[in-house]
């Protein structure tokens, strides 16, 4: 059981997510008024797609379990050779966190676009490129500021995007 969960962790997470959205779609469609302009109404598509999606999720779940219990090795060689580990998700998670912080800084804290963008660019590039000398860090910081200022000029002052 444990092996099944770890080997198919991502697939299971995805199926649960889809099932949750399908359930929400079904629930939401049950709140809609009956059709008035034509026979289908606004609830028909959400309901049908919710049901189809749930059905497909069930089929996929069955095939996952089958593949696992079968004596033959599963079709996905990667999940066999490499068992589940948190380590490889560290960098994407950090990157996502920086993006969320960047968004929060602009929307909730109202930080100026130039400041939030140069800080974000600098942090994200340092995270990804792993600069090994202070000189490189400075270079990254400098180019982040320049890029942020240029973007500000182009998009806020030339195109009037109100970001």
């Amino acid at each position: 059981m444990y092996r099944f969960l770890t080997q198919n962790a991502v697939a299971i997470v995805f199926l649960l997510l889809v099932a949750a959205f399908a359930a929400a779609s079904l629930y939401g469609s049950s709140l809609l008024p009956p059709a008035s302009y034509e026979p289908l109404g606004s609830a028909a598509f959400p309901k049908a797609l919710g049901l189809i999606t749930l059905g497909l999720v069930a089929l996929q779940a069955i095939s996952l379990i089958r593949n696992h219990s079968g004596t033959e090795s599963p079709m996905d060689p990667e999940s066999v050779t490499r068992s589940f580990s948190w380590k490889k998700y560290r960098k994407p998670a950090l990157m996502l966190a920086t993006m969320v912080l960047y968004l929060a800084a602009m929307s909730y804290a109202g930080v100026d676009f130039r400041i939030s963008t140069s800080v974000f660019l600098c942090l994200a590039m340092c995270l990804l490129a792993r600069p090994d000398s202070p000189k490189k860090v400075l270079l990254i910081a400098g180019s982040s500021i320049v890029l942020a200022v240029v973007l500000d000029l182009v998009f806020k002052h030339l195109f009037y995007i109100d970001i």
Binding site: R114, I115, I145, V146, V149, D152
Partner: peptide, 9 residues
């Protein structure tokens, strides 16, 4: 650089 930062902010 200082000037650039000064101008921008």
């Amino acid at each position: 650089i200082a000037a650039l930062i000064g101008i921008s902010f």
